[in-house]
Each structure stands twice: as C-alpha cells, then as structure tokens.
Amino acid sequence: MTPSTAHLTTQDVEDIGIELEALRDEVMSSLGEADAEYIRRVIRTQRGLEVAGRVLLLGALFPPAFVAGTASLAVAKILENMEIGHNVLHGQWDWMRDPEIHSTTWEWDHVSTAASWQQTHNYLHHTYTNIHGKDRDIGYNVLRVDPDQPWHPLYLIQTLTNAGLAMIFEWGIAAFDLELDQIQRGEVTWAEKMPEIKKMARKAGKQALKDFVVFPALSGPSFVPAALGGLLANLTRNVWSHAVIFCGHFPVEVETFDEERLEDETQAEWYVRQMLGSANIEGSPLLHIMTGNLSHQIEHHLFPDMPSNHYARIAPQVRDLCRRYGLPYHAGPMWKQYGGVLWKIARLSLPGGHESIEKRRRRGLPTGQIVTDTLRRLRGWAAPTAA
C-alpha cells in the first residue's frame, strides 16, 4: 500500500477492478465500422500531409515552400508516430483483421524497429509500469526522475541531457530499445546481441537515407534546404513526442513503486498501479489527436489495446471512479505538466530531493503550486512552504 491507497480495503480494490473490466468490455464490444473508418481517415490524412510536405520541399529554395513543406511533413510525422504507429503497434486495431493496419505487420516511421519497441514498451513498460528495477522507462537509463533513484555526479548536467534527448528522441529510444545494459550485466554477449543491433542499424539507415538523401535529391538544386526541412520535421516530431511522453509519466504527483508491489498482484491491483503511475494532459480534441490520445495516459495505461478514439469518452468515468474511491486523478494543462516535469528534472539533478518532492506529492499539492512555491523561495518572495 502507498499513502494514496492506504484507505482502500481489499474489497475496494477488487470493486475498482470489476468496474474497470465492465467499462473495457462495454467499449470493446461496441467496436465497429465507425471506428474502422476513423483510423483509416487518420491514415489518409497523415499520408496526404506527408505527400504535400514532400512535394512542397521540392521547391525548398523558395521560403514559402520550405516553411509550408517542413510544417506539413512535421505534422505528418507526429500523426504517424503518435495516433497511428504507437496505437497500431499496441494492437488497438487488430480486431479489424486488416493486414495493413495490424500490430504484426506495421512498421512505423521511426528508427526503432517495431519488434524491439514492442518488447521494451508494450511488454516491459506496460507490465511493470513505474516499478523500480523492472520498468526501464523510469529515466530511460540517463535521467534521474524519481527521488528513489540513487544520485550520481552525471545527473548534475541532466537538464542539458534532457534537452539533447528531446531533440534526438527517436534515436535515444532506438538505443534504449537495444537494451545494451544486458551486456554490462552479463545476461547476453555482444555476439548474441549483434543480430538485433544489425536490424536496428538497417532500419535507422533506411530512415536516414529516405529523409536526408533520397527525397532531397529529387528536389535537385533544392537539395540542401530540402534536407534541412526533413531534419527540422524530424526535430519537431522528436521534441513533441518527448514532451507528451514526459508529461504522461514524470509529473511530480505520479507515483513509483518497489518490486515488492508485484508480489501476488491481482489484475485489480495492476489497474490501481496504472492510475497512480500515469498523468493526463487537458486540452482540445486537436491536442488529443496530435498526442495520439496519450493526453489520456491514464486511460491508455488502463487499456493499452483499446482504440485510442475512445479514451476521451471513458475519461470522465475513470475520473469519477477515482473520486468515489478517494484516488488521485492526475491531470492538468500541458504547460503545467511539462513545467513541473522540467522543474523536477532540474531539482533531481542535485543530491537528495526525496523530502522536497515526496512530501508535497503526498500532501496533494498540484504541480503548478509546487513550481510556484519553489520559484517564490528562490526569489525571496515568500517563506518556504512547510513540508
């Protein structure tokens, strides 16, 4: 039990699981042609934007074409990774039995291979969400994002590390997906890991060739600005996906757990852990689509194989469930969520941090209040808030 769940009885937890199972069954049994048309429409839109971007960049020597082409290609890449690729690879659309939109056949516009990403994300992260020693997504092996992570001098520069990671996020994820730390721990040898490394290298090479050589070469004299447009489109996609993912996993209020939590964990207890270990972003329908509906990270972690277009519909029911059982439902606008994450990364670059972050989290202060209090103390505007 954690402080946020100490008031729940065993029966309370099981009742929460029963309600969530019923909600899942209701949605999954209702899937039909309207849902299939939704994902097909999103794919058509994404491909239209990509074609428009590539065509406009053929004339990238002209500033209007360069700007419009880069923007169109960036939006296409965001849609492909977030609302399409991520969700297709979770099996959200496997029920359609369409071989072109299936988790076993889709290969996304990303340097990480679909298979390796499904192993580290679908299996490790979604099974062991926020479990220290099991969920490698806690800090992605390069950042200290939780006070319980041991401090190391390298974390002193993690604000810069995080900024660099945002810009090369897809490459960072690809390296992360290789799980090279298995070699360091002696679990596998370089020889055993090499086939996977070669697959990743081939995929990354194809991506780089497509974006920075083949399509720019088609533009002839516009080669350099066209390649630059492709680079900026990838950079935009990387920074956006980094922000969305960090907002969903690393706000101050989000909880992490020890491995003991897994002992005899029931499905209902797993549901509760997902709710405590995730956070939502509040915003418009357009924001939700551009985040791949990962703005509903709580609902996604509860039901990763549920088609994403249903998350907004069930979110009020999940929020009400949390209210009735006295559980936190972490949600806020993107500026607040991301601001809190950046502050947390800066604070945890220094030793300690457990008391200053954990006590405020347990008191239920919103991220925005924590950031405001910290800034006031730093500027001498007010006395420190009692912890």
Rank of each mutant, 00 (worst) to 15 (best):
T2A: 09
P3C: 04
A6S: 13
T9N: 01
D15Y: 08
D15M: 13
E19M: 13
A22T: 12
S29Y: 05
L31G: 03
L31R: 05
A34D: 14
A36F: 11
Y38F: 15
E50N: 11
G53T: 06
V55E: 06
L56E: 02
L57G: 01
L61V: 10
P63N: 07
P64Y: 07
A65F: 15
G69V: 01
T70P: 04
T70H: 00
S72V: 03
A74L: 04
L89E: 13
W93R: 05
E100N: 13
H102W: 11
S103G: 02
D109G: 02
H110W: 10
T113I: 04
A115D: 13
H121C: 07
I131M: 08
K134H: 14
V142P: 01
L143G: 00
V145D: 04
V145S: 03
P147Y: 03
P147K: 01
P153T: 10
L160C: 09
T161K: 02
W171S: 06
W171N: 00
F176R: 08
W190M: 13
M194K: 12
I197H: 07
I197Q: 09
M200K: 04
V213D: 10
F215P: 00
F215G: 04
P216E: 08
A217P: 11
L218M: 15
S222N: 09
P225N: 01
A226F: 01
A227D: 09
G229W: 01
G230D: 01
L232D: 10
V239P: 08
V244S: 06
V244N: 03
G248Y: 06
P251V: 10
V272Y: 03
M275R: 05
G277C: 03
S278Y: 05
M290R: 04
L294M: 15
Q297D: 12
P304I: 00
P304W: 02
D305G: 01
N309L: 09
D320N: 13
C322E: 06
R323Y: 09
G326W: 03
G332T: 02
P333R: 07
Q337A: 15
Y338W: 15
V341M: 07
L342A: 12
A346S: 12
S349M: 11
G353M: 07
E355V: 13
R361E: 05
R363W: 02
Q369M: 14
I370T: 04
T374V: 11
R376Q: 15
R377F: 10
W381K: 12
P384W: 02
